[in-house]
């Protein structure tokens, strides 16, 4: 199964965050943060609470417009563009506190994920022309394929809010994949998962990368990040403290100092 029709050249820069700053009232949530995300890699952003990770996500997906700096996606500036436009361009995301469409079935959630790859409007829906029917069948086929991919195909017709929490996370990832993204942003995908589920998540992320999709993670769970990331950016109080491979980060004195006193235990 191929999630992508055309794969980008390997190791090309897909996303560039260029000295982005953003403040809320008096709080500097992001301060001159820059880094590159190469296509086909798994890139993680870590940092203590309040380091600016979620703000960074919201800036990249278009939910916030940064005060200063640029976001380049596929060599185009995207800051200030609307969230829904960027999804069409291939940037999809998940949320820290799982935001499923709770009243809808598992399958329907994925179908909403297909929104930007389908085009039926009001008239099409009411007229139900033949191309609409064809589109619907195709979207359902693809949605079932994605459910298979994330391991939820047996629950296609259950209400999504009835699923156990861990499964909701997987469904949310499947839904984001519905948009055929080239860049997938995951906001703390392992939070609230047990050890077994975290293991499965790691496998899933590897498989997604195997489809040629670039992943950018914000994560607390160090075992997951250290295990699967190609590169890690450490944010601390809105600044980029360090960037490097998991090995380099683990032995970075500044990073260790920043984590000391707060949360030494979780840092392997």
């Amino acid at each position: 199964m191929s999630v992508l029709d055309e794969k980008p050249l390997p190791l090309q820069t897909l996303l560039r965050v260029d000295s982005v700053s953003m403040s809320f009232g008096g709080i500097q949530a992001l301060n001159e943060v820059s880094f590159d995300v190469k296509a086909g890699t798994i890139h993680s952003v870590i940092g203590p609470n309040g380091a600016g990770k979620t703000t960074l996500f919201n800036v990249i997906t278009g939910a916030y417009v940064p005060d200063r700096g640029r976001i380049l996606y596929e060599e185009q500036e995207v800051q200030g563009r609307k969230v829904h436009e960027l999804v069409r361009q291939g940037i999809a995301r998940t949320f820290q506190n799982v935001e499923l469409f709770g009243s809808m079935s598992v399958l329907e959630n994925i179908l909403v994920g297909r929104h930007v790859r389908t085009r039926c409007g009001f008239l099409g829906a009411m007229g139900r022309w033949s191309w609409v029917k064809k589109e619907e069948v195709e979207a359902k086929r693809r949605a079932l394929e994605l459910l298979e991919f994330v391991g939820l195909v047996d629950f296609a017709h259950h209400r999504s809010e009835d699923l156990p929490f861990g499964w909701q996370r997987f469904l949310e990832i499947g839904r984001a994949l519905g948009a055929d993204p080239r860049l997938l942003l995951l906001d703390e995908p392992a939070s609230g998962l047990n050890a077994v589920e975290t293991q499965r998540l790691g496998d899933l992320l590897e498989r997604i990368r195997g489809q040629g999709i670039t992943l950018l993670l914000v994560e607390h769970d160090m075992s997951l990040t250290m295990g699967i990331s190609d590169l890690i950016v450490v944010l601390h109080q809105g600044r980029k403290l360090a960037e490097g491979t998991p090995k380099e980060i683990q032995s970075n004195d500044e990073v260790i100092a920043a984590y000391l006193g707060s949360d030494r235990e979780s840092f392997p």
Binding site: H84, E85, E99, S103, M104, E108, V112, H115, R175
Partner: peptide
């Protein structure tokens, strides 16, 4: 589906490209 998505979570609906 898009309408119901807006109802359930407008934030997530926008993140789906709606």
């Amino acid at each position: 589906r898009a309408l119901r998505a807006i109802h359930d979570s407008e934030k997530a609906a926008a993140a789906m490209g709606i």
